[in-house]
Design a protein around this nucleic acid. Structure first.
Lengths: 212, 212
DNA sequence: CCATGAAATGAGAGTAGCTCTCAAAAGATA
DNA sequence: TATCTTTTGAGAGCTACTCTCATTTCATGG
């Protein structure tokens, strides 16, 4: 889900049966992303302009905008929600809903952190520090909520467009997002896994009994 | 809370003991807002430029930006979260938490809809149609969540910065927001009050048993 | 009522994200 | 190789937003 799974460069999907054109596109996309991450690391987000990104990626500014609608999207675009959704749907119907969510989240977090932990952290920090990035990230929350609705409705035998399902999806996604932000604010020192588990507990059972 | 209480022009807080300067400032603020609403009604959001707004409000573009940091803020700024927070804190501790929330939300919705129903609807529609506005609105959600955390922590005897309280606040605010969006997508035909009630039920008890 | 200080305003220049158009370049197809 | 399609680059243009500085407008004490 978006709040938990920010973008990463696609691991070059199947090689040879793709035409030269498609392969080039993927390369360009990655080049732009990598240039962006590098520049942000050197100078910060705001100081990094599209022109600089284009230059380092060796494409024209126009091309940058063709690949990414906004500057924030270069950092954030997430292509994995649909995959997670499938995994969710594939979980046995006997499993409790939130357990399914927990399982799938664990799997994707592990995968992401194993593959490119640096990028995950950079993204998390940007989401905390740069309002525009955070805004865009939260926006993608809505999209994630929309996807989730299908799976939730299926599991619970409800209508995906009913207010109840909508509210439930959004409240789930909001809670998970906050866990992610907390993690970033703490400099990614805690185990994201644990934070997510605690978040799911709160969503399932409400607040715990008093203790400091 | 932000998702439910978009901005409205302040009802000219106390008159005479304010200096001429302060009174002028309030007037300018209102003039800018009203010009904006009028222009948006005539031409839509995107077609309305800051220059036009400035012209109709009879101020310079610089002044517009002095009063509102972004174009979206002209439409959305909400000064009422703190008030609702106080009301929340003032509810008896014996009342269940979500009942308090329900009560305060009811009161502010009634007040807002009574005072300027048109503006509330325009804002709701913009939040659905214009990505930038929605983004900004969702952003303010985080701020609202932050405020809420204090009240929640107080009531439940927990730490306001604990992950649990943070997650709970965000999940509450996310759910309420979705109710508001649903309302706007339905052209504000349903009773917002009812939607909010149903949303709170979902947040409290989870999804209802099967029915279509 | 006037002089002095402080705050608000307007004018203008500048930056950068983003859009659009059009012609040139590169890949696909036969 | 020739043709058709897709992708790219160049450049102009728009607008939100920032900064600076001179001017105006209000506040205050004598």
């Amino acid at each position: 889900m978006s709040p938990m799974t920010p973008a990463r460069p696609v691991p070059l999907p199947e090689g040879p049966q793709l035409g030269l054109r498609e392969r080039k596109k993927i390369k360009t996309r990655m080049a732009i992303r990598e240039a962006t991450y590098a520049l942000i690391k050197e100078q910060g987000y705001d100081a990094t302009t599209i022109e600089q990104i284009a230059e380092r990626a060796e494409v024209s500014p126009s091309t940058v905008f063709r690949y990414f609608p906004t500057k924030e999207d270069i950092v954030l675009t997430d292509e994995y929600d649909p995959l997670m959704l499938e995994e969710l749907r594939a979980r046995p119907a006997t499993e409790s809903w939130l357990d399914s969510v927990r399982y799938v989240l664990h799997r994707s977090m592990d995968a992401l952190l194993a593959e490119d932990p640096e990028a995950v952290r950079v993204r998390a920090h940007l989401a905390v520090q740069i309002p525009a990035v955070r805004a865009r990230m939260i926006e993608s929350m809505s999209a994630t909520g929309l996807l989730l609705r299908g799976a939730i409705a299926e599991r619970h035998g409800l209508d995906a467009d009913s207010l109840e399902v909508r509210v439930y999806a959004m409240s789930l996604v909001g809670g998970l997002m906050e866990a992610n932000i907390t993690w970033a604010e703490n400099d990614c020192q805690d185990e994201l896994r644990d934070l997510v588990d605690r978040a799911l507990d709160v969503i399932e059972h409400g607040l715990p009994a008093k203790n400091t």
